[in-house]
Amino acid sequence: MFEPCLTDIEIILASTDCVFKINDTVRGEILIKVHREDAPLHHNGIALSAVGSVRLQLSEKDSSLLDQLFATVDPIEMMDACLELKPPGKLPIGTHAIPFAFALSPTVFHRSTYYDGYRAVSGGSGSHKLCETFHGQNVQVVYGVEVEIMRPLLSGGSISTGMCEFLVESRAEEEGVKRVEQSMPRKFALERFDETEEDLKTKKKKSTSKEEENSSDGGNANLKEFEIRGELSKTSYFIEEPIEGFVEIVSHPRNRKNQLKKIEVELERVETVISAEGTRSTESSAVQFTQIVDDGADVSENVRVPIHVTFPRLYACPSVAHATFSVGFAAKIIATFDDGVDDEEDGSSNAYNNSKTTFKKKSKKKKERTSSISIPISVHRAPENLGSGEKTIL
């Protein structure tokens, strides 16, 4: 039986926030601490692997069960680098620092690649353009490095650090900068409640009778139930700057029971994945909610409430369109109202058992109605010389 290896190995990147730009050189060093019990540490070589891939999956909401089981959605390998840091040999007791560097480009290195100072030589190149780091629902763009000390199995096996993830940011493109500079304000209005399942059932019943249908279309259908207007400063943004605009309550609902409860701005991501068979799957999911009108706040009519929403770093990226996937975003304004009707629910947890009878306590919950509008926006990377704008939050 062999004894477990106690050697510690750690990856330290030169960037303190682990963020690198595309086409930059990723630098760092490997710290290997060899303990007395392992000295000297014999190995068959020390290698570093750097990978970048796009992991895709079809949406469960927008695809059938057969598509999810049999559709082919292969990951996209954008970068696969393997650098030999040290040839076979042995490490004495103590701490050893081994520097490394590789270009952050769509390059495929082979294991035969040798490392000489800060220069890596390779014989191949990748065919996919690098994308920015993104963690979505069905699309994930991930980059990472891993170091392995290769050892025979009888000597305890290889020692690995596991995958150490780092973040990659794209550079500004001229077309994206022009689109942001030329973007115009976008006005919006909320005037009617969103249709619920009960509303759809009622509409089906009314459609069976022509008389009821004609009477319902006589003029009430076009009446405004309330009026909330607003404006976004533009529809194309730099990811470093916030989404800005305003919301103005022009008039409250005609029915005073439907009191305004809150107004939120939801940042939506729209992910599209295309399988090898041509199956197209699109899903919208919420990234974050920013509440601009609080519950219980007495907002007077014709008062402008500002909108200020920042992009979260890990869950947002510049808009991208690829042959097999795309990522876009939208700003959704949601107004929530109290319906004024108590919905009674049987609470089994509030049941009281007696030797003769059983009592169930009913809890009352306020029904809510919403009114929303979704505005597509495009996101781009700002030039490095742009001094204004806020940093995105992690």
Rank of each mutant, 00 (worst) to 15 (best):
K90R: 14
L56F: 01
T95P: 00
H128W: 08
Y114I: 15
K90F: 14
E132H: 05
M78C: 13
S64P: 05
H110W: 07
K61T: 01
D80E: 08
T113Q: 11
S112G: 12
H43T: 07
M78A: 06
L41A: 02
F100I: 07
G89W: 05
K129A: 10
I93K: 12
A120P: 01
L58E: 02
P92E: 12
G117N: 13
V121R: 11
G117L: 09
N44D: 12
S112M: 11
K90D: 10
D67K: 10
P87Y: 09
T72P: 00
G123C: 10
P87Q: 12
A81D: 06
C131N: 06
G117Y: 08
P40Y: 04
L41K: 01
S63P: 03
V108P: 00
P99F: 05
F109I: 09
A101V: 04
S63T: 15
S127V: 11
S105I: 07
M78E: 06
M79G: 06
S63Y: 02
V54T: 02
K61P: 00
T107Q: 11
F109V: 09
F70I: 14
P92C: 04
Q57I: 03
H42A: 13
G124H: 11
Y115R: 10
E84Y: 07
V73W: 01
F134Q: 00
K86V: 06
S125R: 14
G45V: 09
E60G: 05
A120Q: 07
T133D: 08
K90H: 13
P40V: 07
K129D: 12
T133K: 04
F134W: 00
S125Q: 13
Y118A: 14
P99I: 08
L104S: 07
A47N: 10
E60T: 07
R119S: 13
I98V: 13
K86Q: 13
A47M: 11
D80K: 09
H43Y: 11
K129E: 15
I93C: 12
Q57P: 03
Q68E: 06
F134H: 04
P92K: 05
A97E: 08
A47I: 15
A120E: 03
L130S: 04
S53T: 12
E132W: 01
R55P: 01
L56S: 00
D80S: 14
K61D: 06
S112R: 10
L65M: 14
P106Q: 10
P99K: 05
F100D: 02
P92T: 08
D62F: 02
L130W: 03
V108A: 09
D67I: 03
G117K: 11
V51W: 06
G52D: 02
F102Q: 04
